[in-house]
Design a binder for these strands. Sequence first.
DNA 1: GCACGCTAGTTACCGATGAAACCAAAGGCA
DNA 2: TGCCTTTGGTTTCATCGGTAACTAGCGTGC
Lengths: 156, 156
Amino acid sequence: MPADFALEEFLPYRLSVAANRTSRLFARRYSEEFGLSIPEWRVLAVVGRFGGLSASAVVERTAMDKVKVSRAVRALLARGLLAREGDAEDRRVQRLAMTAEGRAVHARILPLARGLEAELLAGTSVADRAALHRLLDALDRRLTEMGAGPGAEGPD
Amino acid sequence: MPADFALEEFLPYRLSVAANRTSRLFARRYSEEFGLSIPEWRVLAVVGRFGGLSASAVVERTAMDKVKVSRAVRALLARGLLAREGDAEDRRVQRLAMTAEGRAVHARILPLARGLEAELLAGTSVADRAALHRLLDALDRRLTEMGAGPGAEGPD
DNA sequence: GCACGCTAGTTACCGATGAAACCAAAGGCA
DNA sequence: TGCCTTTGGTTTCATCGGTAACTAGCGTGC
């Protein structure tokens, strides 16, 4: 059994390092400029795209834990970026919608997010980026087959 | 400002999801079969490869927080998988080495780690994997330029 | 009509995490 | 020598995250 194991080439390790450094960098920017945590920004992003979602629909779309979504929603409600309204047909469900202020913040944070992503990918080839997405797709499928629950988050 | 932002194609998000699902899956296995957390296994891995490291050298090699390394080391010492010995030249430094039992566990966990990684990558092309590593390299460099501290970890 | 199980969402609890404070030992440097 | 900064490493503390337990409402079978 070869003992020459190189942690620095081990995929789970590399992924973890890259994801965490990225998360922290983005978290810092979101937080500095908008006072949003990553879960909050994610919820805002999906509600911004698909209006009238329920919290559990957000859970599906973001792959975040339901507790984390619940907390993020509470924070966004408290800050007046989201509003919610009980569903008439199913009284367990609360539908989420952006407020005017929520839309404003969303519109301002989007370019920041896209800009950071572009900066991160600057200098990489289109082919490599395509391969990356293919591989991440494959990984997602594999993880599901291997019985890894959803769950999406590191430190915020 | 297009509002059609697709979170599910946003790189930081995808990275985070993939890394966290992977970490959790691996953590479960390491923990079930060896009672090791991911930080512990990482420390064991680097000490297994480079003997006689100091804790701060481990920090550099693993990109983990020094506090986390400190805790992982303590746990490994307590379980008798590592031993340490003060450096003669610099009395602040404690050099880490594997015990016989540490080597045994290391030897048994390695195939598990490699096997899981292989399973994760099953069905992906060599070219895509190469692209992935290229991209992760580029990302690391970019992150450093963009002022993201090291830091490596999500939930264990 | 009502007992049972299921889903939406929240709360409670506990372990993990990391920033910052801290201690001890080195290393300039005057 | 004495001071001041830096580094190795641990401890503290506030925060975050997830599992599990809980409440409320829906729906099915009988």
